[in-house]
Nucleic acid binder design. Sequence first.
DNA 1: ATTGTGTACTGTTACACATAGTGCACACGG
DNA 2: CCGTGTGCACTATGTGTAACAGTACACAAT
Lengths: 130, 130
Amino acid sequence: MELSIITGSQVPIYRQIKDQICQAIANRTLKEGEKLPSIRSLADQLVLNHNTVAKAYHELVKDGVIESRHGRGAFVLQQRKVFNKAERSRRLKQVLDLLISEAILLNCTPEEVREEVEKSLEQLHSNSGK
Amino acid sequence: MELSIITGSQVPIYRQIKDQICQAIANRTLKEGEKLPSIRSLADQLVLNHNTVAKAYHELVKDGVIESRHGRGAFVLQQRKVFNKAERSRRLKQVLDLLISEAILLNCTPEEVREEVEKSLEQLHSNSGK
DNA sequence: ATTGTGTACTGTTACACATAGTGCACACGG
DNA sequence: CCGTGTGCACTATGTGTAACAGTACACAAT
């Protein structure tokens, strides 16, 4: 597990941790059932307060990505939480509203947005090939 | 100009104003050169503090969408600021990173993301048909 | 018992959002 | 010139979130 944190970013640190762990699971860098670094050791490694890492882990538990066992550690869930179609659609739409606002502001064509979306979607391909 | 503000939303009010004005320009509800409602009148209408509306207008000026003339009011710019391709790509990517993180978390397929993107992109079609 | 772990608090600092209020400068119409 | 409408700039306050600092506790493995 090697995470990189950008402190100057607008993205909160706990969110960066959360995102990178999700990506690591998608990449199979972290496998199902595998143990995550402990809250304190990851906090030491990243030179952060342990509460910040704990918040990221707590969000991942809430989202059904990992499981934390008191006194033992945190583990990638074998069975990923299944969001129903409506929930997925709702949560994607929240982010897509931001995307559309930005596209209007930048005067992008729909084609250009599609092109950029395709570029970014490549990160999903590795996950779908399981 | 009829804007609707959702106070309970996670989206800041000034951002909602900014987005809706951008959309109105894209929809041709607001035409180039047209005068926007004054900061104070819009604040009264939406029952907000004038500073909040002023912040939204200031962001729009910064982004080259509108122009504000001291003592006269704010106007939609005739000549929209032109962002170069690299800048557009960079700013889109910031939002797309969020989208990908959410897609990984929700276990979406690339196809499902494309589908949702297409739904949202319909808001851009009206703009491209100028 | 000791160590490593997650959990749960209390404080504190910093920043963003929003409100409230005031004063000032500019533009326009009487 | 004067009043009104406007944008601009500033201070101050309250609220919420992010992050840090520190502490205490409960559980698990050895």
